[in-house]
Design a protein around this nucleic acid. Structure first.
Lengths: 194, 194
DNA sequence: GTAATAGTACTCGGATAGTAAGTGTCCGAGTTAACCGGG
DNA sequence: CCCGGTTAACTCGGACACTTACTATCCGAGTACTATTAC
């Protein structure tokens, strides 16, 4: 198992599509289908980004996600910690104090301060975090934009918009089919389709 | 679960006691008891250090472990990789190529080269490894030596030596108890006082 | 025309499998040192 | 005094429980928007 899991990868890829503002927010289901990742899992990841104030969620019909802050202010480290929490690279078991020579309790010099081995790991974790904090969402989007052909970002935006529009008309279209089938309509009670 | 596990911690603590050469090699059982760590587990860790040519193992009776190389040439990274292997910080799922817009196969620009997100993680892993490679066993031992009181290292060496000597005489002592209990003995009877 | 209402799509959160990895234990095989008795 | 057999202690490696975390799925609750109906 890797230290940085699949959930972070899914999140970053979703955020990349949200860098350029959309006319309608993107639903978690659409983001999942767009990228071929499990929708139920993504629906569990995105709320964590919301709690971290990285995205805003619009509830209800026509709901979805938008970036809350400008992408140049969101670092990869922000995303990692929003999803995985701040889990340590290493958790010290305090072996120092268990030495068999300490018959009755470990002396102060062996329990105070930080273990030297632990100190190395803490330094390593710090440089790791610093490196992850160097790259922002805007940097990532720029890099991706250089690789993809000219119209691609627009195509994706169009696909997402189409998806939203299709959903908006679905109820109405279904009603139309009902009318066309010649079935009488009851006033108040609605029939459930399917 | 942490990226760098307990096994690495046990290993580093053991190695610290081996920095100063011992007259007799230290057995895995003694190292375990000295530090209050599960012996059966440690017996599984130390062979990995041997395969990485960090320690040498003396087999058979009076066997045990010694440092193979000078401690200034053994880095913390060496120990981590000897035990955990070179597991990646992040394993890329290649989400790029799964885009729903690629109806019939992903285009070359989306599969060639390294994913931009992956690239960030690779850089992070590199700085992490570099930081771990900065500290050697000799550095660690020096730091520990500054914290512990003057005679402590000597006390530990004495304890390990005593342990080895005690084992050397144990069989004989047990023979005496056997003789005292009047239980008959098969082939080669033995007796000796410690 | 305006207000109430039903329906739908979405987010959010909890509950729940399944799977992979790390921790820890146990046992058998092979190896070496020490010891004993017999020459 | 020296030689061969026996025993004990150790490393090494495989097999096996146990725990934990992550991935993934499902379902219920709440919320907002739309369309329809009634006044």
């Amino acid at each position: 198992m890797a230290y940085i899991g699949t959930a972070v990868e899914y999140a970053l890829h979703c955020l990349l599509w949200l860098v350029e503002p959309l006319s309608t927010p993107a639903s978690s289901g659409d983001l999942a289908e767009l990228q071929g990742v499990p929708a139920a899992f993504l629906a569990k990841i995105l709320p964590k980004l919301e709690r971290a104030r990285i995205v805003t969620a619009a509830e209800g019909a026509r709901g979805g996600y938008r970036l809350e802050r400008p992408p140049a202010g969101i670092t990869v480290l922000d995303v990692v910690e929003a999803i995985e929490g701040r889990k340590p690279l290493f958790d010290c078991q305090e072996i120092r104090g268990r030495c068999a020579l300490f018959r009755d309790g470990a002396p102060r010099w062996a329990t105070s301060g930080i273990c030297s081995i632990h100190a190395v790991m803490v330094r390593a974790e710090e440089v790791l975090r610093a490196e992850l904090a160097r790259t922002t969402l805007a940097d990532l989007a720029r890099t991706v934009g250089r690789k993809a052909p000219a119209g691609f970002a627009g195509d994706v935006r169009a696909w997402l918009g189409e998806r939203a529009a299709l959903r908006a008309s679905r109820g109405a279209r279904r009603d139309e089919e009902w009318a066309g089938s010649g079935v009488g309509r009851a006033p108040a009670p609605r029939r459930k389709v399917r």
